[in-house]
């Protein structure tokens, strides 16, 4: 199998949530590389390929960003607003994954260009289902956009995200 391993960027400051997400991804048998950054500034550095993330081979641009809203230093909504202003990055699908189901948060996230908004589930069964759904929808079914700056990202068959 000629698998292009699409990278997922998880922006999450809570190590417990990271751990549970990783466990759920494992349970769902996703092999896509998951890069985790812990705050908004790191997210920006990663996406811009700055500092420790300069190596694009090691830190490739993600095809999906899972974005928590409540983050130290720079909030998820600020990251989102910034992202949608970046010519080479603005098309990257963003799924907000957060604890809040406040209508104000939901509306603001969509206003700023979020592609989806999910509330972190309390239980692990739900977490697993969520991860499976994410994979199915965003990795497999969803058409990936071209990078706005370069057309280097090749178009790939829909089934390539899953190894099972």
């Amino acid at each position: 199998m000629n698998i292009v391993k699409y990278t997922i960027l998880l922006v999450e400051d809570d190590p417990n949530d990271v751990l549970l997400m990783e466990r759920a991804l494992g349970k769902a048998k996703l092999v896509n590389p998951l890069h985790v950054v812990e705050d908004g500034e790191q997210a920006l550095a990663y996406l811009e390929g700055q500092g420790p993330y300069a190596d694009r081979a090691r830190y490739p641009l993600p095809v999906l960003i899972l974005l928590d809203l409540k983050l130290p230093r720079m909030s998820g909504l600020e990251v989102l607003a910034w992202l949608r202003q970046q010519p080479g990055l603005k098309r990257i699908p963003v799924v907000v994954l957060t604890s809040s189901n406040e209508p104000a948060d939901v509306n603001r996230a969509y206003d700023l260009g979020s592609n989806s908004y999910l509330v972190k589930p309390g239980g692990q069964e739900e977490m697993l289902e969520l991860v499976k759904a994410l994979n199915l929808y965003w990795m497999i079914l969803n058409e990936k956009p071209e990078s706005a700056r370069s057309r280097t990202a090749p178009r790939t068959p829909a089934s390539q995200g899953v190894t099972s």
Binding site: N16, D17, K70, T98, K120, G122
Partner: peptide
């Protein structure tokens, strides 16, 4: 909604 629920989730 954010902070108190996070430890619960964990």
């Amino acid at each position: 909604s954010h902070d108190l629920r996070a430890p619960l989730r964990a």
